[in-house]
Amino acid sequence: MRSARPDALALILTHGRPGSFLEFLDVVEPLFRDFHLVIPSIPGYGFSGPAHERGWDVVRVARAWAELMRRLGYERYGAQGGDFGSGISLALGAVAPEQVAGVHVNHLPTRPDPAAGVTLSPSDEARLDKVRQLMANRPPYQALQATTPQTLGYALTDSPVGHLAWIAEGSRSGPISGRR
């Protein structure tokens, strides 16, 4: 979506798992006033259709996003991502540093590199401890996806009702809701 402002900075917004561009419906209108928006679906997710080959990790998707932005004519742009999209947006900043003006993420379950000299506040340390606890006691859907993603992928592709149930279960018992 091209903003009415010809000098607007472009933003590429990347959704999470199991989402799609629909995650951004509430922010499109306010952002569109001042930014050109590119909101693709991650290969194999949402409305993109299946990925027909292996290897679509965050770096490969980031390289695809850099090529997409180049083909759309954007020489400089910002990147935003949440959930799985946060890793893609961070990788995009690394693979296209001359083009990416800045990266914003709203999911970053990692500690800053100790060599960076960053000191976390007590509240940030407490949040990081919660993430450590979550990762040590992963919800079952995360463990299954981490250990047998291909099997699960075929099962979800074969059954729309199964896919809906999987998404609902992940939303109900996942880290966002805090319920188990």
Rank of each mutant, 00 (worst) to 15 (best):
G82Y: 02
D26V: 08
G102T: 05
R132Y: 08
E23W: 07
D7E: 13
R172L: 14
I167R: 11
D158F: 10
R33M: 07
A96L: 03
V118S: 02
D26I: 06
M69H: 03
Y141A: 14
D57C: 06
V103F: 00
N137V: 05
P149E: 08
V105C: 08
L134Q: 07
G16F: 01
P40M: 02
L120G: 04
H36V: 03
R132H: 07
P112H: 10
G78D: 01
R172A: 15
M69F: 01
H36I: 03
S121Q: 12
L128S: 09
D83Y: 03
Q145N: 09
Y45M: 06
P149L: 11
I176H: 14
G49F: 05
T14G: 03
A10W: 02
S159I: 03
A143N: 07
L11V: 04
G117P: 02
H107C: 07
Q150A: 13
A64K: 01
P50G: 06
R127V: 10
A155H: 06
W65P: 02
G19K: 02
S159A: 10
A146L: 13
S20A: 15
A165N: 13
I176M: 13
S177W: 04
Q142A: 13
L108I: 13
L9P: 00
S177A: 12
A91S: 08
R70G: 05
L144P: 00
L92Q: 02
A168C: 08
S89I: 00
E29S: 09
Q142N: 13
A155P: 03
V95D: 03
V118G: 05
A143Q: 14
V161F: 12
R33F: 06
P112N: 11
E23G: 03
G170W: 02
A10D: 04
F84T: 13
